[in-house]
Design a protein around this nucleic acid. Structure first.
Lengths: 167, 167
DNA sequence: ATTTGTTTGACTTTGCCTGACCTTGAGCAA
DNA sequence: TTGCTCAAGGTCAGGCAAAGTCAAACAAAT
């Protein structure tokens, strides 16, 4: 069964896709009415699905004429560089949700394919690291970091090989 | 007398047989009600009968809109090969050397490509799992296990999608 | 008798959804 | 200005809906 969150998420994504500049402005109450739910449900969707890790920036203003603005930021096509930036972002601890967000973003931007995403998700699952918090989040951070840097290294290597072949 | 486990297993198998793509989605509570047993009985059936060793992969989600998805990995595709290697060579503990040997072999045989290999090597590095032995080798085994099953599931999924497109 | 496998149910964790209440900003009137 | 009112969005705790875990009781097999 698809949930309301999923449906609303998809709706927002398609609005962003259709937009010229990868950003949209919405009115929380209005969208809520469209989907016949409470306004805070919209907040929930945004909090869980349009996070910085996934590559979105959200701005909003209250009061009369208020709005919520969702901006999609992309890595600009420089794969290895983005990978290093994300690796930094991982930090010392990371929970499963945030790790999956980062993987989702890489997938979304086309830096990794579905298979690589699956591998990474498998590695950061709770079941892969059956130890107590906060050790679990610390290990997940190390694992994700090492996967990202390993990928960045291969990325660069392939790029070099590619150049060599062309030249 | 056949036990409940057997009956439920049979039922799930036949559902998968009847499915178009070799995978099904069920609701644990609903199935439990059908067989008039507690939900955890369904978990038991799945844990003992639909394992990777037997060629099945299970994914699930909790909470509202939750489900359990069972995928049968068939034939000689990559997914099946990955599961075979998994069943035969990844036990409860695995050291870095053996893990890398497995990854290397998978790459040599063309079951994974260089990027996938790089990701896997990154995940199983000693630096990714900075804890004492024998815990480190145990976690490495879990990580490798989950990466392989996740990849196998996607491979299977892609295989079926491919076949569907051809037909 | 011991061990292995099944069944049950209490408790936990995760994730979605709602509603009550809080904070902020704009417009306007005194 | 100051302050009132109303129109937004923000927060948070709680309820509900799933699946997961685990130990204990029970059954079957050796």
């Amino acid at each position: 069964m698809r949930t309301l969150v999923d449906i609303i998420e998809q709706h927002i994504r398609s609005m962003i896709d259709r937009s010229a500049d990868g950003s949209i402005s919405i009115q929380r109450a209005e969208l809520a009415e469209q989907f016949r739910c409470v306004p805070s449900q919209i907040s929930y969707v945004i909090d869980t699905r349009f996070t910085p890790e996934r590559g979105y920036i959200v701005e909003s203003r209250r009061g009369g004429g208020g709005y919520i603005r969702i901006v999609r930021v992309t890595g600009g096509g420089r794969g290895a560089q983005l990978l290093r930036v994300l690796a930094e972002e991982v930090g010392e601890y990371i929970d499963q949700r945030r790790a999956e967000n980062i993987i989702e973003r890489l997938r979304d931007e086309g830096f990794i394919d579905e298979r690589q995403a699956a591998l990474m998700r498998g590695a950061v699952r709770r079941e892969s690291i059956p130890v107590e918090l906060p050790l679990r989040d610390a290990l997940r951070a190390r694992i994700l970091y090492n996967m990202l840097t390993a990928l960045a290294a291969v990325e660069q290597q392939m790029r070099r090989a590619q150049r060599g072949r062309k030249a």
